[in-house]
């Protein structure tokens, strides 16, 4: 565990807390893409299958349980909560996310480290995570105005990816640890998807104005 990896995990955790805080305090999920949240739930459930087969550390186990349960809770809230679900922007959130699931499943069956159920699921989850933010970014772009908490949620998610890249570079030099190239390539793609968002986020932060994305 190094400082970049820890910062990455913490910003990931903060992003989820920010999202829960938004839903809890405003009793609203406007601006939040259910599709992206469903994709994250699928990502965590398929990636953390090793929860029942391998033990790495208490930290690792706790974080995995937190990520799986929080993502399922968020999906439940947007779909079923009697107040929250009314604010869901259904007509703006039309991204065909199951196509991403299908494409990533095919890719995982072709490109993986080892042909085992767990390893193919792991590769699938890495690919899916890389593109899972797309429905959210499309939704934000369509709605134009981004409320503060939603903006911060996406910002922290992007920061988490950036820290993970620094972590891989650090591990490469300090431990001669080669991060799997599947993770590296997907991680870089995933971080790049945030570049545009980051640009507008920093401009609005610098000008102390509300975050607005161009149509």
């Amino acid at each position: 565990m190094n400082v970049f990896r820890f910062a990455g995990d913490m910003t990931h955790l903060i992003s989820i807390l920010v999202l829960l805080l938004k839903i809890y305090t405003t009793k609203s999920c406007s601006g939040i893409s259910l599709k992206t949240q469903e994709l994250y739930a699928v990502v965590f459930v398929t990636r953390y299958l090793d929860l029942v087969t391998d033990f790495i550390s208490v930290y690792n186990t706790v974080m995995k349980v937190v990520f799986i349960s929080s993502s399922l809770a968020i999906v439940w809230c947007i779909r079923r909560h009697k107040v929250v679900r009314r604010s869901y922007d259904k007509e703006l959130d039309t991204f065909r996310h199951w196509l991403l699931v299908g494409a990533c499943a095919v890719l995982a069956l072709v490109v993986h480290e080892k042909f085992s159920f767990q390893e193919v699921c792991w590769a699938f989850s890495i690919y899916l995570e890389a593109v899972a933010i797309l429905p959210q970014l499309v939704l934000l772009q369509r709605s134009g105005n981004v409320d503060n908490l939603t903006g911060q949620y996406v910002f922290f998610l992007g920061a988490y990816r950036a820290f993970y890249i620094l972590n891989w570079i650090y591990r490469y030099y300090s431990e001669q640890h080669f991060t799997r190239w599947i993770s590296c390539v997907s991680g870089i793609v995933q971080t790049a998807l945030y570049a545009d968002f980051f640009y507008y986020y920093f401009i609005s932060w610098k000008n102390n104005s509300k975050l607005q994305l161009p149509a």
């Binding site: 790495i56 080892k114 792991w122």
Partner: peptide
């Protein structure tokens, strides 16, 4: 080795 395909990152 055991660590070969162990995923220690989240």
């Amino acid at each position: 080795p055991l660590g070969n395909l162990l995923h220690d990152e989240l």
